[in-house]
Simulated scan of single mutants.
Amino acid sequence: MELRIFTEPQQGATYDDLLAVAATAEELGFGAFFRSDHYLAMGGDGLPGPTDAWTTLAGLARETRSIRLGTLVTSATFRHPGPLAIQVAQVDQMSNGRVELGLGAGWFSAEHEAYGIPFPATGERFDRLEEQLELITGLWANPVGEGVGYDFAGDHYQVKSSPGLPKPVQRGGLRGGVPVVIGGHGKKRTPALAAAYADEFNVPFASAEDVATQFGRVRAAVEAAGRSAASMTYSAALVVCVGADEAEVERRAAAIGREKDELRENGVAGTPDEAVARLATYAEAGVERVYLQVLDLADLDHLRLLAAEVMPRV
């Protein structure tokens, strides 16, 4: 099982905080550094304020060397698809091919209101997400050459004779570009979108039983689309709070404002032995990759404990 580090910078983090976590994660051998794409804290004051996901990843692309970088997930409501395709391709070039694009419909209405971003109804958001997936991957896959332009005529986005530049360094994604991550709990449309566009499907913050059920829906959708179910990577995201002993578990839980018993029930928490056992239940559910949601970004010793006592055993 691959372990990745997942952060929530909108809760209060500077770029330097994120760089310290990413650099430490790279040094320790974690598979990737991912961040959320949010502009408003979910509780607390959020000081010093939000950082932009793709600006952050562009900086990290130049200050790291091997760790993969991405979003879980970028909101389709935040950016027009053409400029987003350019942003992601550029960061992929800046990182020499280490970027992954997690893209979702968006859900947090308060941050849209706080920063003047339109927030359509659920159905329209998913319609826009589907068009963005088609358009972004189409721009990346479009052949390069004089007179070769990309056209798209959707209900929400229209493109005419686009050169589809720049191209990502990576060309091995399902549709010929940067790997795409889609996730969620939706029973029909979400699996169908994943089957059409995604290299990876992620289920966030769910029990192993619920994860297995959702993976079953996704596998069925992938096979119905003419793909092998094994062509998809199956992942989960879980909050992490591990300590060398019970006192350390309690201290780390308190630092993020959570109860240790609740974290044990809903995340990867407790001693390293407990964390390994917990991850084994997700492996049995079909999880190949776990995004460990690290909420105290100043606690780099937490990463070191995970790398030394958990990662080698899963």
Rank of each mutant, 00 (worst) to 15 (best):
L139E: 04
A141E: 11
N142Y: 00
E146D: 15
V148P: 00
V148L: 15
Y150P: 00
D151C: 11
D151S: 13
D151E: 11
D151L: 04
A153H: 12
G154D: 09
G154R: 08
D155Y: 02
H156E: 08
H156C: 09
H156W: 14
Q158L: 12
V159A: 07
S162N: 14
P166V: 08
P166C: 04
K167P: 06
K167G: 10
P168Q: 10
V169D: 00
V169W: 03
V169E: 10
R171Y: 01
L174N: 05
L174H: 02
G177M: 05
G183M: 02
G184R: 07
H185G: 07
H185C: 02
G186N: 03
G186M: 12
G186R: 09
G186I: 13
K187D: 15
K188F: 00
T190Y: 08
A192M: 13
A192N: 11
A192L: 12
L193H: 07
A195H: 09
A198S: 05
A198P: 05
A198M: 08
D199I: 14
N202Q: 12
P204M: 12
F205M: 15
A206I: 00
S207R: 10
A208I: 02
V211T: 15
A212S: 13
Q214P: 03
F215M: 06
G216P: 03
R217P: 00
V218T: 06
R219P: 02
R219Y: 09
G226V: 04
S228V: 01
A229K: 07
S235E: 00
V240D: 07
C241G: 02
C241H: 06
C241R: 06
V242C: 01
G243N: 07
G243Y: 08
A244N: 14
